[in-house]
């Protein structure tokens, strides 16, 4: 126990715990948006965007996080334009952007001799390597996400319910859609740094799926998803530190385990 407390008192570990708690508490709200707006393909595209960002930042010795965030924003805006100008849906635009980013990343890695292994390393995340500025950036985005949801809850619920009805109620559906997509892009770029691309689902998607099992309202869904998120990220991180396992994997495992338990209980109740 004293070893664990000692570990937690170390600055990189403490920063990681704070960051994971903030992310666990707020990022599931973005997961609700991803699932409800059917943006799962976009999430994969954004992961590829981070790989391209990683390749560019290694090639030109640029800071990874700002480059990834900027690139993801550009990709999202490009996708929105592509979806608006063509009859292709968001899924098709995401697929096109995914192919484009991976192709560009491979060319950048080849031309600038960027080791693929180093770029792919980014996919595993590094919560112990966070700087204070990273934590502050994370806090700012978490705050922006929370405020956006709290102050626009009525519009968000209407858009989630039915976009045609939201439009007939005079809501700015397109503006909110763009805002939500941008928020998701920012959250995913940050989550990548924390958890790694392959394990984003642990913070974004699984808490929402767990919470959706019993929620009767959207408000309940947001609150419960965030509570599940903070639970798995906090205790998953502590468990990782205590057992000397990678935090991303431990958190993801805890999420998946919780999801399995809840699903089993619900199915047993039904049968």
């Amino acid at each position: 126990m004293s070893d664990l407390l000692f570990m937690l008192s170390l600055a990189p570990v403490a920063k990681g715990l704070v960051a994971m708690t903030i992310a666990g508490l707020c990022f599931p709200a973005a997961g609700v948006m991803v699932l409800r707006l059917d943006l799962v393909p976009m999430r994969y595209m954004l992961m590829h965007g981070v790989i391209l960002g990683g390749a560019l930042s290694l090639a030109f010795s640029l800071p990874l996080l700002p480059v990834s965030i900027a690139l993801n924003l550009l990709l999202v805006l490009g996708m929105l334009k592509l979806t608006k100008d063509s009859s292709a849906g968001f899924g098709v635009s995401s697929a096109a952007a995914m192919v484009f980013t991976m192709a560009l990343a491979s060319i950048v890695m080849h031309v600038f001799d960027v080791p693929a292994k180093d770029t792919l390393q980014l996919l595993w995340g590094s919560p112990f390597a966070l700087r204070v500025s990273d934590v502050l950036g994370l806090l700012a985005i978490a705050l922006a996400l929370t405020l956006y949801v709290v102050f626009n809850f009525k519009s968000i619920s209407a858009i989630f319910f039915d976009q045609e009805i939201a439009q007939s109620l005079g809501m700015r559906v397109q503006a909110h859609h763009t805002a939500m997509v941008i928020v998701i892009a920012l959250v995913i770029a940050l989550a990548m740094k924390l958890l790694g691309a392959l394990l984003i689902d642990a913070l974004l998607i699984l808490p929402v799926l767990i919470a959706a099992r019993h929620a009767q309202s959207l408000k309940q869904l947001f609150i419960r998803a965030c509570l599940v998120g903070v639970f798995v990220s906090f205790f998953g991180f502590i468990a990782a530190v205590a057992t000397d396992l990678p935090p991303s994997g431990t958190i993801a495992l805890l999420s998946a385990f919780l999801y399995l338990i809840i699903t089993t209980i619900v199915q047993r109740k039904k049968s």
């Binding site: 699932l35 039915d162 045609e164 009767q216």
Partner: peptide, 23 residues
């Protein structure tokens, strides 16, 4: 304009009756 659609499609997503009315 108040618009009432034929039938909302089946969804697994929770939204309460009060939330639908309050929007």
């Amino acid at each position: 304009i108040g618009y009432i659609k034929q039938q909302q499609t089946e969804q697994q997503f929770p939204v309460s009756v009060r939330e639908v009315v309050s929007m």
